[in-house]
Write a protein that binds this DNA or RNA. Structure first.
Lengths: 221, 221
DNA sequence: CCAAAAGTGTTCTGACTACACCCATGC
DNA sequence: GCATGGGTGTAGTCAGAACACTTTTGG
């Protein structure tokens, strides 16, 4: 009984943290929404399988992807265990499959109902991990394209934390600490003053803002 | 091919962070040291299997235990994947098995050589996780018995971080923040002045000192 | 009386919070 | 000319780092 590998693909879309879900066309849980995933193939690595699923659904392979947690398979399922990964990407870069069956679509996490295979526990775990990583690392950059305004970056934080962020403090933390740097391009958007575009300081590198790799699960059992 | 479950059992022994290892008596990697582990049994949960292994090796079931990470099985192995857990306990509480074959023993991580099944990568991951958790949580308490001197607690931090800690700042952080509280017992040890004994403030509860559940692996692939 | 470890306070610095106004543009 | 969002500075608070001497006991 090979393990299943699922990928929680997250993005910020219209100011809301959203996951890529697939409507099941086949039988266990037909018609319900589920995380994209499948069985680990023979001689395939876990990272390889996650990467493959991610590419299948979005066409991307150069985005943030890391292992999340391994879960027991739900009672009704067919797999022994489920190894979950999570990925972060700018919604604009994803090219979703357009088949009628198994069609993928973005769903805001806020107010999302139950999913196939109790996948909501995995989604909840991913959201929690992301929130915590936000505090210690640069992961937020993974959710934006190469050039962005500070307002857009701040919007990403607000969408994930679900609370407002002070503009000036945010700017200082993020520019002052040297994690992003201004380019000399600007962008005009609608009826606004043109906004300066920024980019990652170590271009596209993920820096653990402070301590890498912590983990909660305050179990005692 | 059921997944294997292994447990990294850590303690601080003689001022050094140490893991419980088992000398393999049977064939793949006979004679080499390995992490305790085995195959996930049918209808067993991951947490259940880890808990069972832990109990088999130490007789304990009320200590800190959490999932660590899932690894691809090494080339030579027989399992599909390896789900690693890690446990923390006071060395004094463990009652090791005394059989001649498969005998378990504590090994300081400092200067430890290669292990069976490339288990050293799992051990390294556990040490890293522990270091990070130390900064954000109370896990260190899991490595000491119910009553302890501040010096002992500080020794645990120093053993894990492998660097000295300022006595006064440490005392303030740990008592001032209210995570441990003094009892009115003392203990005399050797040719020293008697030392006050402390205990966990919310007795034996693990409090996430600040943000729970972060994770590094700054992958980008 | 000497060695060894316990115990105790202050100062400095850097990081984070809270908070209000002017500016440039498109309509 | 006005509505919209971009851009900027200051003061207060708190946490953490550095740092040295006195006390008690056993030998």
């Amino acid at each position: 009984m090979a393990p299943a590998v699922v990928v929680v693909i997250l993005t910020v879309l219209e100011g809301r943290l959203s996951a890529l879900l697939i409507e099941r066309a086949a039988d266990p849980c037909r018609g319900q929404w589920a995380l994209p995933g499948g069985l680990l193939q023979p001689r395939e690595t876990l990272d390889g399988a996650a990467s493959r699923k991610l590419r299948d659904e979005t066409g991307l392979s150069d985005v943030f992807l890391e292992q999340l947690y391994s879960f027991d398979a739900p009672a009704g399922g067919d797999a022994g265990i489920v190894v979950a990964y999570f990925a972060l990407l700018p919604a604009s870069r994803a090219r979703l499959r357009r088949e009628l069956e198994w069609r993928p679509a973005w769903h805001a996490l806020r107010g999302l109902g139950p999913l196939a295979f109790a996948n909501e526990r995995i989604l909840a775990y991913a959201r929690e991990r992301l929130r915590n990583k936000l505090a210690y690392t640069n992961v937020a950059w993974s959710l934006l394209p190469g050039r962005f305004t500070l307002r857009e970056l701040q919007g990403v934080y607000e969408a994930i934390l679900e609370e407002p962020v002070d503009k000036r403090n945010f700017r200082r933390r993020v520019v002052g600490a040297g994690v992003v740097r201004p380019t000399n391009e600007t962008r005009k958007e609608g009826a606004h003053r043109p906004a300066r575009l920024y980019e990652f300081s170590p271009p596209a590198a993920l820096v653990p803002a402070s301590p890498a790799n912590a983990h909660s699960s305050r179990s005692t059992a």
